[in-house]
Design a protein around this nucleic acid. Structure first.
Length: 401
DNA sequence: GCGGATCAC
DNA sequence: TATGGTGATCCGC
């Protein structure tokens, strides 16, 4: 198809696409702070937490036919999510496959969601281990918060140690440090709120500021997300990664960048977005899968920059919604508001009932057909009939006589 | 409105 | 031995 496109067509397409791109650029919105939270190796992490025997071993959650996830130890052997367990065993014979406990994961997920709701009551959960938040409003309110409202007390990891007298954080053992690596990141201090060093131990000038057994988080987006991750870890003993950006598309890519147990922010400036996008492989973007990657690769497109450069060609080869979607990606654009959960995914009660009664009707017809067929088969001397599959359309036709 | 294809998890 | 299940969206018909 590409070979049949004339330079005349391409020039015309270029003008049209660029006009649309200009409109998009004008409506670029950098005023929202979107966060994507992603629990690290979630199911595997839960299983390791609850069974110390698994701590230092390569494990995966699932069955011999399908794995949901693996821990980072197992990933070093090439064991990945969506891989059959028996193949994973070939890559890593010591691999321990734990059957999934979805009720447990749901319960832990609920604990995490309770924390997330403090920062965005309308957050969007994509699954048990992933969610988008719009913390724009929280950030505004937070600017006036006193330090005490941003202070959290550190609980040490083991119940045995709770009886001992409290230690100062800077004297924690190596073991305790490993429980909460978040606190000891050597990231530069956040100097956002001036004058909040007043109560702080003079030896501890790092931020988050540590005063004995408590920690104070700042008022920037970066600090808010550190606080979220800290609270998740304190509550569940599990770590999360996060991305901060002006839209969901970018936030999602960011959360992958410093995984596991890390975070990354794209500052809300056009240039920061463009720098980030520049060499980004399109496959990293949610919505670009195996097939689309292959199609675009055939056109010599691998990165977002190349996607932008080929925008005119793409508008001639792909559907309207597809090339517009590609253009959004190549400009670093994405949605800045989270569609309320339930509005999009679920349907109305009335619709659900109508779907159910329709299904029941079809099921009855299917049963009748099976019985008729069984009788016919018996007449012809055939005694057995196995599972019979009827296309829905056939049933419909029968319904019409 | 349906079925196939693609995608996310 | 053995490679999932579900829901959403888009597209062509």
């Amino acid at each position: 198809q590409k070979a049949q496109i004339t330079s005349q067509q391409l020039r015309k397409a270029q003008l049209q696409v660029d006009r649309f791109a200009m409109e998009l650029e004008q409506s670029r919105d950098l005023n929202n702070t979107i966060v994507h939270i992603d629990m690290d190796a979630f199911y595997a992490a839960v299983e390791m937490r609850d069974n110390p025997e698994l701590k230092d071993k390569p494990i995966a959650v699932g069955s011999s036919s399908m794995l949901s996830t693996s821990n980072y130890h197992a990933r070093r052997f090439g064991v990945r999510a969506a891989m059959p367990g028996f193949i994973a065993k070939r890559l890593c014979p010591q691999l321990i496959i734990v059957p999934s406990n979805f009720d447990k994961y749901r319960a832990v997920s609920k604990e995490v969601k309770e924390i997330l709701a403090d920062y965005d009551p309308n957050f969007m959960a994509m699954s048990l281990d992933e969610a988008y938040l719009n913390i724009t409003k929280h950030l505004q309110e937070r600017q006036n918060w006193p330090e005490d409202k941003r202070r959290y007390f550190i609980k040490t990891g083991h119940s045995l140690e709770n009886d001992k007298p409290r230690k100062e954080v800077n004297k924690l053992s190596e073991h305790e440090r490993s429980i909460s690596p978040l606190l000891f990141e050597d990231s530069p201090p956040d100097l956002q709120p001036p004058g909040n060093t007043s109560q702080v131990n003079s030896e501890e000038q790092n931020n988050p500021q540590i005063l004995q057994n408590s920690v104070v988080f700042g008022t920037s987006a970066e600090e808010v997300v550190k606080e979220i991750r800290f609270r998740i870890e304190q509550k569940t003993t599990l770590t999360a990664s996060a991305g901060i950006a002006p839209n969901t598309m970018l936030a999602k890519v960011c959360s992958d960048k410093n995984k596991p147990n890390g975070q990354y922010q794209i500052l809300p400036r056009r240039q920061a977005v463009m720098d980030f996008i520049k060499d980004l492989p399109i496959r990293k973007v949610s919505g670009i899968g195996k097939v689309t990657e292959k199609m675009l690769k055939a056109l010599g497109i691998t990165t977002c920059t190349e996607l932008y450069q080929q925008r005119a060609l793409l508008s001639l080869l792909f559907s309207e919604s597809s090339w517009r979607y590609f253009l959004h990606i190549s400009m670093g654009l994405g949605s800045t508001h989270l569609t309320r959960d339930g509005e999009r995914k679920s349907m109305s009660v009335e619709r659900t009932f109508s779907e159910i009664s329709k299904a029941e009707e079809q099921y009855k017809l299917c049963q009748e057909l099976c019985n008729e067929l069984a009788q016919d088969l018996q007449k012809e001397g055939l005694k057995e009939y196995g599972s019979l599959v009827f296309p829905v359309k056939k049933i419909r036709n029968t319904n019409n006589g």
